[in-house]
Amino acid sequence: MLRAQIAVRLGTLDLDVAIDVAAGEIVAVLGPNGAGKTTFLRALSGLVPLDAGRVTLDEVVFDDVSTGIHLAPERRPIGVVFQDYLLFPHLSALENVAFGLRARGASTKNARAAAESWLDRLDLGPYKEARPRALSGGQAQRVALARALATEPRLLLLDEPLAALDASARGAVRRDLRRHLASFDGIRIVITHDPLEAVALADRLVILESGRVVQTGSPAEVTRRPRSRYVADLVGVNLFRGIATAGHVALRGGAAIQSADGVDGEVFATVHPRAVALHRARPEGSPRNVWRGHASALDFQGDRVRVGIEGEMPIVAEVTPAAVRELDLAEGGEVWVSVKATEISVYPA
């Protein structure tokens, strides 16, 4: 069990997070650039001192600012796969993997033997004597993983493990990584800005924004109920925040919408762009939510067009190119918007 309460101020970053991770869990810390993800990882590693907080792994105290405890990085039972992997360029793949064992006091012979078996296990047998610059991105990543695992850590940290790879190689390497992560039984924390990577690798997502945890939960929970603009944009839905009273949601900014969900109080409301209908004139009939706006941006994505609507209630709609022609939509043109109450999902903020 990892219990981490971490407060670090570094330049403009104000990181203040508390995360518990159960034994055997794989957690992805997902967030935009500059959210403090790498600082969080460096703080867990002991490479950045805490301004306040306490970090414990099982019974081992890593940091406790109140009692002045700070365990040096080299004394923590951790393994880190760094962004860009940081394989020592002057050492062979084998020597890289043996480095941690040597540093922890193993004899050259034992360290080499253990390193060889790790390389074999990660299908790197033929590359033992290769220098890092001769390895492909995927091979380098596996050497970095072997190096981190060779010291048998209880906590494995991975910082953007796929970011250094070509898009073409990423899929295969991600599947491999998933398999190798599954065979390690300690706590695994993956830092990433890529939601696909987070969802593919982790049991649980921790969303980090501007140094704070804004949401945590299984990938399904997080995508179903985004709690921040960042997550909503990742998932591709419209997110609103307001106060609900018996199905009437007064939004921040003055507009209001009607929902079929019976939640009261501070709420988030999401609308999928496909559920947003556009009309040339005020529509007749049942939709409860109708308002007028201007098309501000048309983004053609194959057989779909995402239309940004400005007005009293900004929203993104997704329609077909045919609909764009029928509606005679142009940037800046007037358009009526409608959303059925049943298409608006409301949940407590």
């Binding site: 990085p73 080299e74 004394r75 951790i78 940081l86 922890r104």
Partner: peptide, 21 residues
């Protein structure tokens, strides 16, 4: 790139070993 030194420390190397190796 000082991050190599960070990597060495997380692998269990003390300051002198980091410097030398």
């Amino acid at each position: 790139d000082r991050r190599y030194e960070d990597a060495a420390r997380t692998l269990g190397a003390g300051r002198w070993i980091v410097f030398r190796r």
